[in-house]
Every structure is written in structure tokens, then in C-alpha cells.
Nucleic acid binder design. Structure first.
Lengths: 145, 145
DNA sequence: TATTGTTATACTCTATAACTATA
DNA sequence: TATAGTTATAGAGTATAACAATA
């Protein structure tokens, strides 16, 4: 059987752990878990409100987890939930001003960590890494079905 | 701030999820969590018994999590714990024959999934991916400190 | 009837501290 | 005193099912 060190899930996990190890302390200072940060990042990414389903897809969090997390983030005043204009079943989740401020406080430190990682790679290598990772995540560009 | 889609942790998570989504059902059939499988894989990798600390490092699991998991795997007859020959504080954890059989049952299906992923890449591309991932996980080969 | 989101429930893992046994 | 591992405890996420409201 393939060696543990040559397992793709393990290689991805190791790489992710190495990156997150530098970043988690920053989140912890602000009382945020990795998953909560994913939600805030996904919300900060777009100016329009997003449904719970959209957030679920983008953050790889399940609906029930998200429901509870959004309630907690709402209690902290970081996000706001409203009913979607076109479909009353849907939620319209967005960052509050305070939530956006928090993201903007954390973002520069995140960028600094990122640049220190970037320096370890030759020009173009990181692009190549992104290209290979997205090929893993979505086979379609290579082998359309 | 960097787009969510261009976040390295997210790209790694997406890639890992895509790979694990194909593999988790196989584990579930055998009543194994992803983390338990990591432990079994780490044990299957070497013929000599490993200490809890070694397993912790290799699987990215915390000591307390491992202690409980090893107790559960021991109850299922998949692993055995003994006292280390040289140092009575240390444990000597190894797969039982049944544990090895289980790994050998699952391994071929895991390999099949792996080969179907491999087919999506040109020769050498996957080597390049491993190289870039290991650079992320360990900067030393590039920039010795 | 199907879909969106929430609530309920049980389980697993994370994380830290306290403890035991051994070195 | 320090180290290896376990136990205790609290909290967060995973996963599935059941449910309410809306389409």
C-alpha cells in the first residue's frame, strides 16, 4: 500500500496545518474559530447578502452547523440575518459594519503571513500550485463529462 | 483583501474535501472516522510499534484524542498497546492481525480512487504537486535557517 | 410536493489542565 | 524535575432526522 507520506489527503492536510498553524493564533486573539473565520471571509468577499445554502457550499460547513454559528455571530453583532427579498424561505446574511471592521483588522496580518509564505516560492510556482489544487477540486477543466 | 477563492487555506481545504468526499464512504462502511483511519494508516506504515507521541506527530491528532481513540480501536481488536521495552513511560502501539486485515481490505479501494485522480494529471504533475505541498509544509529545504 | 432553513440529538474531535507513573 | 500518557472537562463541529414555513 502507498506510503503514508505519499498519501494525497495527508500531504494536503500537512500543508494546510503548516499554513494554519501560523494563522490560528491571530484568529484566537479575536475569539474566532477557523470555521467562523471562513464564514466571515465568505461574507466579506461579496457585497450582496448570501443565503445559508450559498454559505454552506462556499465554506464546506453543514446547514445545522451554520445555523448555530450564524446565531452566535449575530449575538456578537458581526453578522445580520434578514429574509431574502424574492423568496421568504431564504435568508439574506451579511456582515454588519462591526463584522467588516473585524475582517479588516485581521486581514493585514493574514496578508503578512501569506507574503512570508509566498517568498519561499519562485515566481509562478504558487500559480502552478493553485492550478494543480483546483484541478484536484474540480476535474471538469481537464476531462469534461 | 485577498479573494476567498485565492486563499491558500481554502484552496487546500477544497482540494482535500474533493479527495476525501470520494473516500469517506469507504471508511464509513467500515465504521471508521477519517482520524481513526489516519491512525491505522500510520501504524500500517511501519512494522515496529510506535509511541503515542510519534503517532500524535504523524497524524496531527492531540494526545487526549489519541488516547481515547486508541482505547476504542483496542476494544475493536484493531490495535494493541504494550509498554515500551526501553522506557516504561512510553507505549508501544501496533496493529493487530485484524487491524492489518482491515487496512488491507480498504487499501485497494483507496488505491483505485487514487489512480482515478492520477489520470487527471499529466506525467510529473502530481510529483510537482507533492513537491510544492511539501515546500509549504516544511520551508527548510528552500530557505535553511 | 419540493425547497430553505432551524431545531433536536448523538457522537467525535479540539483544547487545556490536572494527574499518574516513570525517568 | 521533566517526560509520556491518561483522565477530566468544556466547547465546537459533524452528521442525520424531524420539523416549520414558504414556494
Amino acid at each position: 500500500m502507498r506510503e503514508f507520506g505519499r498519501s494525497l489527503p495527508m500531504a494536503l492536510l500537512r500543508a494546510r496545518e503548516a499554513v494554519m498553524r501560523r494563522f490560528r493564533p491571530i484568529l484566537a486573539e479575536h475569539g474566532l474559530t477557523e470555521q467562523q473565520w471562513r464564514v466571515l471571509r465568505a461574507l466579506a468577499d461579496s457585497d450582496v447578502a448570501q443565503s445559508v445554502g450559498e454559505l454552506s457550499t462556499r465554506t464546506f460547513l453543514l446547514g445545522p452547523s451554520l445555523s448555530r454559528m450564524l446565531a452566535a455571530l449575530e449575538r456578537r453583532g458581526l453578522v445580520a440575518r434578514a429574509v431574502h427579498a424574492d423568496d421568504a424561505r431564504r435568508a439574506a446574511v451579511r456582515l454588519t459594519a462591526g463584522g467588516r471592521r473585524l475582517v479588516e483588522t485581521i486581514a493585514p496580518r493574514s496578508e503578512a503571513e501569506y507574503r512570508s509564505i509566498e517568498r519561499r516560492f519562485a515566481p509562478g510556482e504558487l500559480d502552478e500550485l493553485y492550478r494543480l489544487l483546483s484541478r484536484l477540486a474540480d476535474p471538469r477543466p481537464v476531462d469534461p463529462v
